[in-house]
């Protein structure tokens, strides 16, 4: 696993002419004992790679759904140690690439080198740190390099072309295209932002582009499929983990529908 597995995934989807699907789930959801099983079910439903959300007390890039998931996971005793353990089990149980998603404070509290090292030991391919923009990324990028994993950088609808080029020049493992303005969460409608941003990013770099934030339905994913290398869906799945009486089956069903539109296959 590790970084090469993620790199080769992007090579593979480009060759196959499809779009990768990278679902997000908070470590500790639907409950701490079922998280790994949930990721396994998403893998069986066709997910290509995963984001494992490390619960944090103050997730300011997250909307109410993932905030609630973080708070619930923490109140049920999920720890940093527990999150790394789940990350490792997800990688070994699914045999697919996974990234740790966290915030700057827990990451720097442990230390960038130790955090990246622990993620690498767990078999992760990289880190996504929601409040770590390019300006603050250097010590973390260096720590990731030393650990042999990748660091994801973001691009948003507000990022101008000059800044896009600078972000791309740091050669992140992929660019996380923030599809919509605002924090994570489901949206009833889609703006022009995601397609415009994808076009602008494609014009300046061939670094893999994965989009998330505000993408929750198969229709929303379908409109972007041709423009990106991968799609991330988080809140729509986390909501099911929080609310559904049979969360794993429902999440697997939602993943199957999303994978179908992204791969051009029919839902079976």
């Amino acid at each position: 696993m590790g970084l090469p597995a993620l790199d080769s995934l992007f090579g593979q989807v480009r060759t196959e002419g499809r779009t990768a699907f990278l679902p997000f789930m908070t470590a500790g959801l639907p409950d701490p004992l079922q998280t790994v099983e949930c990721f396994e079910a998403m893998a069986e439903a066709g997910a290509d790679a995963f984001e494992v959300g490390f619960p944090y007390s103050d997730p300011l890039m997250d909307g109410p759904t993932i905030q609630l998931a973080s708070a619930r996971a923490l109140s049920q005793g999920m720890t940093l140690e527990g999150s790394f353990k789940i990350l490792g089990e997800v990688v070994s149980a699914t045999g697919r690439p996974a990234l740790a998603m966290s915030y700057a404070n827990p990451m720097f509290r442990l230390g960038a080198d130790r955090f990246a090292g622990r993620a690498a030991e767990a078999g992760a391919s990289g880190l996504i740190i929601a409040d770590l923009p390019l300006e603050e990324s250097r010590p973390v990028a260096e720590a990731c390099d030393r650990a042999g994993i990748g660091l994801v950088l973001f691009a948003a609808p507000t990022t101008d072309d000059q800044r896009l080029a600078r972000i791309a020049s740091h050669d992140p493992v992929f660019i996380y295209g923030v599809a919509e303005l605002g924090v994570t969460g489901e949206r009833a409608s889609q703006s022009d932002h995601p397609r415009t941003l994808a076009t602008r990013i494609r014009a300046v770099t061939s670094v893999p582009l994965v989009m998330g934030v505000g993408i929750s339905t198969p229709d929303q994913a379908a409109t972007l499929a041709a423009d990106v290398d991968g799609v991330i869906v988080g809140s729509a799945l986390v909501r099911r983990a929080l609310e559904s009486p049979d969360p794993i089956a429902e999440i697997a069903g939602a993943v199957r529908e999303l994978v179908a539109v992204l791969s051009g296959r029919e839902v079976t």
Partner: peptide, 20 residues
């Protein structure tokens, strides 16, 4: 230049806000 007072301060913000 990085918005720091010694080792404090900086800009740990989501990308969406950085240009603003």
């Amino acid at each position: 230049q990085q918005g720091r007072f010694g080792e404090y301060g900086g800009m740990f913000a989501p990308e969406t806000l950085m240009p603003a």
